[in-house]
Design a protein around this nucleic acid. Structure first.
Lengths: 183, 183
DNA sequence: AGTGGCATGTAAGGCGTTACATGATTTC
DNA sequence: GAAATCATGTAACGCCTTACATGCCACT
């Protein structure tokens, strides 16, 4: 639920919808993304619910910046959610696996073409994750040592991306080999 | 898109909505699942589009079984989709990572509790995947040797589940250790 | 002259879930 | 006697995407 991404982000600092989009893109987008339009509408809802309040900041030659601040009720609502045990697993959907599942009658070259496209994509994603490493914790602790624990958690989510993508790549390689040998 | 799961399944053999639900649960549900209600409404749509046709099979003391068969247009539509290169990555959402990301200020015990719940869940999922192994290919090739290639693909999707879940577990263990040492 | 960034939104539609509605048969 | 299985569906709602709408500023 985007609701909680927004509350959690605004719990760090007041931001506008536009700011939130960038914050999300740079932090949670690997495990929770959102379009601007959805962010704007969700902010309106949260405002109606009294979980955030809006302050308009006038600007010359641009629309007013509408900066949102979390309220004590919003903070509480977020804390309750965070504390609540999560006893499920989010549903997973994967178009490539669907195609592979139904590809028993496809030509060898077609199957390998599909797998190869994905191999390239995931290879780049792995590199992106690995490039982010190291820096995060070090930099945060230099500039804001009180955020040390936060930095460790952010690094943990990055690390998840890396591990998951390395696993995906490994499966792709294994499957490519299997198809080459059996089709 | 559920549409293609249904077309792909009906491409194997005619089935009712109820049958399809079971087929999906036993085969694609790890990477594409659906509720019965959605299956029924999607079948109506596909029928209107002329991609499948329905034959009512009367039954005593039960609603008629409405068995759907794929049409040549449906088969073609499905083949086109299967053949079309997939150049994206499906969006991924993960509530646990979201909670972890925002948990920098949480108590050590609360964080470990969340991670532990998930560790148990994913441990069981791994075991489920590993229990399925081996059997699939051997059994299919005994009973229906012409499905050999299909069986290899089904096994590939199972193997994906195993690899992905082992990776998830590994990340959980790594993260649990990190929290124990740093919080 | 065009692209990308800043800054806000609305409207329509797609996909999916949950709850509701019905009712006999089989299994524990 | 209760629960699961067989068998169909509808209605309301939630979440999210895509397209549309506006307009200035900075950079190349």
């Amino acid at each position: 639920m985007l609701k909680f991404v927004l509350l959690g982000s605004l719990n760090c600092q007041p931001m506008s919808g536009y700011d939130l989009k960038q914050f999300i893109d740079r932090s949670t987008s690997n495990f929770w993304h959102a379009e601007l339009s959805q962010i704007y509408t969700t902010l309106k809802t949260l405002e109606k619910e009294g979980l955030i309040i809006c302050t308009s900041v006038a600007q010359e030659k641009r629309p007013d910046r509408r900066v949102y601040t979390i309220t004590p009720e919003g903070s509480q609502h977020f804390a309750d959610w965070l504390h609540q045990p999560f006893t499920e697993v989010d549903p997973y959907k994967d178009t490539l696996l669907l195609k592979i599942f139904f590809s028993g009658d496809q030509d060898k070259t077609d199957i390998l073409a599909q797998l190869d496209i994905q191999r390239n994509i995931h290879q780049k994603i792995v590199e992106k994750y690995q490039a982010e490493t190291a820096g995060i914790i070090a930099k945060t602790m230099e500039h804001a040592p009180h955020l040390r624990k936060h930095a460790l958690m952010w690094e943990a989510t990055r690390r998840f991306g890396e591990i998951a993508e390395v696993a995906y790549l490994r499966w792709l390689d294994e499957t490519i080999q299997m198809v080459q040998e059996n089709f």
